[in-house]
Structures are given as C-alpha cells and as structure tokens.
Design a binder for these strands. Structure first.
Lengths: 223, 223, 223, 223
DNA sequence: AATGAATGAGGGTTCATTCAT
DNA sequence: CATGAATGAACCCTCATTCAT
C-alpha cells in the first residue's frame, strides 16, 4: 500500500488530472451532502406540517429521514435553524413572481379569474408550507417574514394589473390596494380556511363569482 | 379531621339545620370554586395567547394565577382540557349573534359598512382568543370546531342580510354565499394578518371601500 | 367529608390554634424539604469528590440520593448551582475561625505546632471538599472564591499569631506574611499532595520539624 | 489504487532503486507525520490548559489545529491517549534535572535562593501543563504519575544540595526531607495558588525571605 | 494521510402529572 | 380547597468515535 502511494508521489499524473480528480471527489461529496441537506429539509417540511413544529421531536425527524438523530446537527445548528431552512427553501416566491409576468392587455374578468385560480392552485401545491405559516408564526420570526413576502407579492400581483387596467380605461380609478387585498385575502382563506370550516361554493366558482361581483357590483341596476 | 370532631362536640346541630347550612355553604363554596375556575381560565387565555400553548408550562400558568401548580388539576383534568375550557368560555358567538339582530331594512351600503366595522371590532376585542385560534388549531380538535362556529356565524350575519336585500330588490339576485364570505374573509385577515403583514389602507377605510366595490363594482361605466 | 369541613368553617377553633396548626404543618414540610436539600448536597459532595463534577451526571447524583432526576431541579436550578451549594455549605471557614480564637500568649513552638496539626486535621476532615477545590476551580467561579477565603483565613491564623509574638519579643521582627504562608502552603500540600506524591516523613513529625526549622533556623551555629 | 497502476506502467523501477526510494520517502513521511503529531499535541496542551480536558471537544481540538476531526484518530487512539501524550511530551523533568547539575559548593543562602527562583520560573514557563496537572488528576492516572515524578525531582533538587551542605558543615544535621519539601511546596503553591488567592509579597522577595527564615530562623536571639 | 459524513449513547434540563399532607 | 414535593418520560443537543471515500 505504502509502495504504490510512493510510486504515485514519484510519478504523479500531470497537474491537471490531479486537480480535476481532487475537485471531482470533493464535488461528489459536496453533492451528496447537499442532497442529504435537502432530503432532511423536505422530510422536515412534511412532518412539521403534519404534526406541528413543537410536537415534532428531532428524533422523529431523523427517523422519518432514515438517519441518526445526531446527523441533524451536522446539517443544521438547531431545530429552529432547520425550520428556517425549510421555510426559506420552500418559499414559492419565485413561482409567484413568474405568474405576474404573463398578464397583460387582456380583459379584466378573464385575467383576474385566471390569476385568482392560479394563485389558489399555487397555495394548494404548497399546503404543507401554508400549514407551517399559519401555525408557527409566533416563535420563529423568519416564518412571518417569509409569509409576509409572499402575501405582499400576491397582492402586488393583483394590484399592478389593476392599476394597468385603470390606466387603460377599463376600470374606474379607485384604491386598487383594497381591491387587490380583497382578492388575495379571500383566496388565502379559501385555502387555509378550508381546513377550519367547510365551504359551500366550489373554489373555482367562488373565484369566478368574486371577480364578477367586484367588477360589476351587486347592486341592482337603477333601471 | 381534628377540627371536625371538635366542632361536632362543641356545637351539635339538629339534622335540619345541618342540611340547610350545608346547602347554603355548598352554594357559597360552589361560587368560590367557580370564581377560581374562571380566574384560572382567564389567566390561561392571556398567557396562552401571549406565549403559545406549548411554550406555556403549567407552572407558569399557576404562577400567573397566583396559585400552586397542583391546584390546576383540581379544576381541570389536564392542560389540554384547560385549553378547551378557555376556548369554550371565550367563544364570542353570543355577541356575534346579537350583532345580527339589529340590522334590518336599511340601505345596504350603510348597513354592510356598519356591520363590517363591528365585526372587525369584535375580533379586535378578542385578540387573545384569535391568537389561539390561529396557532393551536392542529392538536386540539375543539379549537377549530369553535372557530368554525364563529366563522359560520359571521358569514351568516352577512349572508342573511344580503338575502333580505335581494328580496327587497335592492340587490341583484346572486350567490350571496360568495359575497358574504368575501366580506368575512377579508375582515378576518385584516385582523389576523395585521400581525403578519402591514396594511397600507386603514381598516375602517378598507371596509368602507370594500363594500362600495362590491355594491357598485369597479368596472368603468360603459356609457 | 364536605360535611365536617363545613362544620370546621362554621365553628372554627380560636385564631391562635388555627395559626399554630397551619404554621406547624408548613414548618414540618419546610423541615422535610430542607432535610432533602441537605441530603442532596451531601450526596453531591461525596460523588463530585469521588468522580469529579463533569464526570458525574445528574442522573447518577439522583440515583445515589435515591430520588428521581427531576427532583434535583426542584431544589437546585442547575447542576452548577448544586455545586455552588455544595461548596458553600461545606466551607469550613467557621471552624477555621474558631481555631484562631484559642491561641494566645503561649510559646511559639508549642502553639505553631498545635495549630499546624489542627489545620492539617481540619483539611483532612474536609477531604472531599478539598478534592473539589483542587479539580473544579476552572469552570465555576464560586469554587476558587470560597477556597481563597479559606486559604486567607488559614494564613491569617498563623500571621496574626506571629505578629503577636513579634510584639511580645519572642520572635524577630520580620515579614510575617511570608512565614505564615510557608506554614499554610506546606500544610495544604501535605494534605492535597498526599494523593499525588507519597511523603517520606509522617505529617505530624513534618509539621513539628517545619516549625523548629523556621523558629531556630537550620544554619550551623557560627562557632 | 488507480494511481499506483499508472505509475507502475509509466515508470517501472528496478528493485534496488525502489527500495532506497522507499526508505528515503518513508523517512520523509515519518518526519512529516511526527511533525503533525507534535503539532496536535502542542495545540492540545494549550486548549486543554485553557478550557479543561472535559470541556474541550475533539472537534475544537481539530479546528484549533487546522485539521479535520477524523485526523485526530490517525495519530491518537482516543482523546484520553492524546492527553497522555500531551503530559508525557511536556513533562519538563529533563530541564529540572539540569538545574540540579549546576549548584555545588556555594553558600547555601545564595544557592537556595537561586534554585528557588529557577524552579519558580520553570513552573511559570510550564503554566499550561501545571493547569492540567491540577485539574485533570482524577480521571487519567498518567497525569498524577508524571506530576509526582516532577515533584520528587524538585524535592530531590533541594534535598541533595542540603545534604551536601550538611556534610560540608554549613548546615546543622537535620531531616533535610522536611526542609526540601517546605521549599518545594511553597514554591509550587506560590505558582499554582497564584490563580486561586492573591499574594501579598512578590514571589522573588518571598523566596528570598523564605530561605532566610529557614536558614537563620525567626526566633529572637537569646543574647 | 486526510476528510467530514454518520452514528448513537448520554448529557443537562423541562414538564405534565400525581399524591401525601 | 390547596400545597408543593416527587416522579419519570421526553426533549434538544453534544460528543467521542468510526468509516467510506
């Protein structure tokens, strides 16, 4: 063993190959480690959402991920930091922003309904995260911070579009912040409240009608 | 034990007087006991709201109430049962129902704005309870049950009125469930979300404009 | 059960007897608690001395005391505080001070030998504590603080006496601090070092000769 | 493994050259390894002295030495063995012995003062090690063993000289073991105790006076 | 030789709950 | 009714150590 290592030193491969070899190895380890990290985060997302942060022990988390408890602390400084990592990683702000980009110059009724549904769907895909947002707000400041970012983006999504349509003359000049929030708030509670209280109207129909209400009003025509 | 023997020897009573005494005393005792119970519940409401259920220890609760920890278990079988008692006692469903009674045969704009504000105010007065509703939903089934009751009542509050105004011809015939929920959801998040993300428009103005939006629509007049 | 308690209320004993009853009970509990506290401290002294503070787990301590681990934290806020309690309680400063009181106006040789031995004996009786003094100095500031107090007292013990004898003309005028420390240091290491390195001369003989050396010197008479 | 095959193919060597190469390389490797070993030991000495053995984790040790934790276990079988290596390597017995060699046939006052100071200085230079001696005696038998060796050497240092001076007629015949220990003990505590309790007299003056006390005595001349 | 991922035992501590008084 | 001593399970976290690379 010593012998061939010696040979190796005496007759090393050219510098390039040595370096790449080293780099590749280290990269490989790093990749594996990053994979682990993500696996642990994803497992945590699921379990936290299901059982709540406080009711989930690190031991459970580790078991759910199929690793030893100690390993959690190799990747995260504390249970709290793990929660932060979860929330940061799964923040769907990017997806939300991309929604914004696509809507222009279409009739308000059509656009608002479409965007409303997409927003609703997005929240649905992130149900676990939403659960965390709603339940772990108190103790961990990062949770409301991220949630706030998402809400603000969601509201902007609507408001920017509304402003545009006001300029285009399709909508009355008015406080679009209020309108945007009405939409956003309703959609959020349509999702989150779904757990807490049953809905009578199907979500899609709800969104459609909500948009119609807001656009046309519900007052009877004066004649 | 020693005491009772002494008392008996010194002052024997006929059976009748003993009984009435007993009854009166017993009532007095029951009242005292009920007072204590309520005191413990009220303290718990406050502390749970501030620190969260899981982060609050029975010892803290007892200290905050100025009693020994052991006493908690004379009044409540467990910490969980205490939470249930808190939520049950402070459910403001009655207040909510009384809101409903006062509104009839007035112009929709005026009524909806007034009711909206009152609902908003009520939620504000019950901030501690709201906190519990939002954070302790998962582990204790009674929490979402009560919350659901309140939400449904709040929604009915609006919907019944809307139905009435539709019949009266002031409003278009439409799915009033949707309209009612829009209002209720927005007001709830106006309250609860206030912690999570800042509002740009003041709540009262928000409610007023929301009602106007819904009644008159935001679409530009075709003319 | 309720019945006689009620009777008790109706016909209470005179105020005095009630108070003493209450006081006695509470005193009894307090006494039991204090006993426990001391028991835990004494057990800890022994175990810490034998195994060292860091190598002793709270679980072991509890087992050695025959109680549940949780109880430790009913009496002491932390393991560190327990150590402090141990050191404070067993500080033999009072005993040391009482040694001081007895020595006056006797021949230096006799007195110093006697006091030296008594000091040595006292350290011997407090072997466990000495062990703690020597090993746990680093992490817990209270340990060196107490130890310092004891050493200073021990040194004063000798120095005050020496000063007195200088005044009395029995001893030369000289820096008695140095002499006092020589004696104190030697006796301390005679004790503590006993563990680390064997002695050739018996402690009593050692002390006697040490005193003789210091008093008469070891230089050969000049002629 | 891949490397060795490559090397062999590219540059086969005759047996002789391989062997000498091997030997030279091996020496070079051994030197490097020994360097590392010493580096790890020296780092450990410092950190152990500063934080205490138990409070120092292998990770910290590795970080302080700038290597990965795993590497510690290539050089030392366990953390305990590392401590042993530290104590063994830094035992300053040789330095102590060399002190002994220089003192002969000089006046006792001068010599004892000089040796006392040198001993005191030596202990000062080895402060880290002294710290370990004082705090980690319990769990690791090698620690008191080494410490004992040093103390005995220090005592011999004085005793041998004293015996010589007795023979030379400069000193009275007496139990020189006691005198030697008085000196050694006082100097050790002057060092180690310095941490625990403040001194009033400066160390050098202390040593000088101590020697004077012992040589000339403190008793007033009878005249 | 060197890395650092992975392990799992054990650490100090908290806490809901019980119970003798 | 009220106390607080006592319990023991569970918690988060640290750590010495091993091992694949």
């Amino acid at each position: 063993m010593t012998a061939h290592l010696t040979a190796n030193i005496i007759q090393p491969m050219n510098e390039h190959s040595v370096k790449t070899e080293k780099a590749r190895r280290s990269t490989w380890r790093d990749e594996k480690a990053e994979e682990r990290r993500l696996q642990l985060i994803d497992t945590a997302l699921e379990v936290f959402a299901r059982k709540g942060f406080d009711k989930t022990s690190v031991r459970e988390l580790a078991t759910a991920a199929g690793v030893a408890q100690g390993l959690m602390y190799h990747y995260f400084k504390s249970k709290d930091k793990l929660l932060e990592a979860v929330v940061e990683r799964h923040s769907f702000l990017p997806q939300l922003k991309s929604l914004l980009a696509t809507l222009h110059n279409e009739a308000a009724a059509k656009v608002l309904k479409a965007v409303g549904r997409q927003f609703y769907d997005l929240l649905g895909q992130k149900e676990s995260l939403m659960n965390i947002f709603f339940h772990e707000t108190q103790s961990h400041p990062i949770v409301p911070r991220i949630w706030r970012g998402i809400m603000n983006e969601g509201i902007s999504l609507f408001q920017n579009y509304l402003d545009e349509r006001v300029k285009a003359g399709e909508l009355k000049a008015h406080n679009t912040d209020v309108t945007a929030r009405m939409l956003a708030y309703a959609i959020v509670l349509l999702r989150a409240g779904g757990v807490a209280f049953h809905q009578r109207t199907r979500p899609e129909a709800f969104i459609d009608q909500m948009v119609d209400n807001i656009l046309g009003g519900i007052a009877a025509p004066v004649n």
